[in-house]
């Protein structure tokens, strides 16, 4: 269970500290240069800002800003291109994987990723997503699963937990009426085109580190041209869950993981990735 200390200090560090301090202090953290230096519109405790930063850290560390094209969805992260200092395209609701296909097929040596929420990917866009993965498009799909439609203020999503209260399931999700939540990572991992499928979270420092490793590896796997990488991230949504950020982090560990267990679901075999050096670390199992 995360404590207050586990909640990441994302915004309190003063990165514009005067130069005279440099001799006295060691720089242990800086905002990635690949992030646009503006205030974000996300709610306090939201996972999006954190995951944006992790992706941009990977882009900075791999020095691939010039080779990376992102595709933003419709949802809370519709303004991702306001924050990520890379070339991006805004896709229609659910169509990010089709747009990414168009980009990647024409520019196979670029790094292309989509960033999609659960309404975008698992409801209106599940067809485009499934077919892109089935074709083994060499793209990274970052799938933010917070079990609700965030931007439209908390309606039921295909990933809403059984019994979970949302604005359109006021008495809790009735699985006999709406079916069970779709386990996207498990579902997509069955497709031969899926190269690497994992589900992570960002509700504790350790979870953030694991998510970053997953993103690092997924970006590197694009060099192999062997298939789609899907990184599902269980995202905190305190505003729509009607919780404090700490309660939301706890909710993930206590409730969300029952339906969406964390960990790698499909791993590339060792031979497939042996040409890659400097993989971040072993996968978390």
């Amino acid at each position: 269970m995360p404590t207050e200390e586990d909640i990441l200090p994302t915004t309190t560090l003063d990165v514009t500290a005067p130069a005279c301090h440099e001799e006295e202090y060691e720089m242990v953290y800086h905002k990635p240069s690949t992030m646009v230096d503006v205030s974000m519109h996300y709610c306090p405790g939201c996972a999006h800002s954190l995951v944006h930063k992790l992706i941009m850290e990977v882009v900075e560390e791999m020095n691939i800003q010039e080779k990376t094209i992102g595709v933003a969805p419709v949802g809370c992260s519709v303004f991702a291109y306001d924050y990520m200092d890379i070339d991006m395209q805004e896709a229609a609701h659910g169509r990010a994987c089709a747009v990414a296909t168009g980009i990647k097929r024409l520019m196979p040596d670029k790094y292309v990723f989509t960033y999609q929420g659960d309404g975008d990917l698992a409801a209106i866009g599940i067809g485009e997503t499934l077919h892109a993965i089935n074709r083994g498009e060499n793209i990274l799909i970052v799938f933010m699963n917070n079990a609700v439609y965030g931007m439209t203020s908390g309606q039921m999503a295909p990933t809403t937990l059984p019994g979970m209260h949302t604005t359109t399931s006021p008495d809790g999700r009735d699985v006999s009426y709406y079916g069970a939540p779709i386990k996207v990572a498990e579902l997509m991992s069955n497709l031969p085109g899926a190269f690497y499928v994992t589900r992570q979270a960002v509700n504790s420092a350790n979870a953030v580190r694991r998510t970053k490793k997953a993103l690092q590896n997924a970006f590197k796997y694009q060099q192999l041209h062997k298939g789609t990488c899907l990184v599902e991230i269980i995202g905190n949504c305190p505003s729509n869950w009607k919780m404090t950020p700490v309660e939301a982090s706890r909710f993930i560990d206590e409730e969300m993981v029952k339906t969406f267990p964390l960990g790698d679901i499909k791993l590339p075999n060792a031979a497939a990735i042996q040409s890659l050096t400097n993989l971040s670390s072993d996968h978390e199992r």
């Binding site: 395209q89 296909t101 168009g102």
Partner: peptide, 25 residues
């Protein structure tokens, strides 16, 4: 590049992606 998409919805969005990257699509 020639691709049989899974639907017309997908094909027009593939055109969007390719055209957005500056290609004749």
């Amino acid at each position: 590049i020639v691709m049989q998409a899974e639907s017309e919805v997908a094909s027009i969005n593939m055109v969007y992606g390719a055209a957005g990257a500056g290609f004749r699509a």
